[in-house]
């Protein structure tokens, strides 16, 4: 992959290619403003993800790395327990699958629904 192959996208000024990327970005800024981590801690966490083997040369998995860096930093800061995100994300996916097309996706639609609001 040469740099040249990426340049046709240079005119594409959209900051994010999918809404979840914008959400992940904004969560990070909000948590930093809240003082959950310093910006240097964040940059370190992100750069560790970005230098892993197998990261796409064209940067197309940049926000996957971003989210993974955020989750790891939150575990390191004891904000989220390992597995918290896995479990809730899986519940959302089950809920989505169980929701008829065109209806809003509600967590209650998860066939294995747990009441997350009452989770400790």
């Amino acid at each position: 992959m040469s740099l040249h192959d990426l340049l046709p996208q240079a005119d594409d000024d959209r900051a994010f290619s999918e809404p979840w990327q914008a959400q992940a970005f904004a969560l990070t800024l909000a948590l930093h403003q809240k003082g959950v981590f310093s910006w240097s801690e964040w940059a370190k966490s992100l750069s560790e993800e970005l230098k892993k083997r197998g990261v796409a040369e064209d940067g197309s998995d940049y926000y996957e790395c971003w989210l993974s860096a955020l989750e790891k930093l939150l575990v390191a800061k004891s904000v989220a327990a390992p597995g918290d995100v896995d479990a809730l994300a899986a519940a959302w996916q089950r809920a989505a699958h169980a929701t008829p097309h065109g209806k809003p996706i509600l967590l209650e639609n998860d066939p294995q629904h747990l009441d997350w609001n009452r989770a400790p």
Binding site: E18, Q23, L27, V85, A89, A91, Q93
Partner: peptide
Amino acid sequence: MAARVRAL
């Protein structure tokens, strides 16, 4: 990925 961000 959307599910993970929503969960987080």
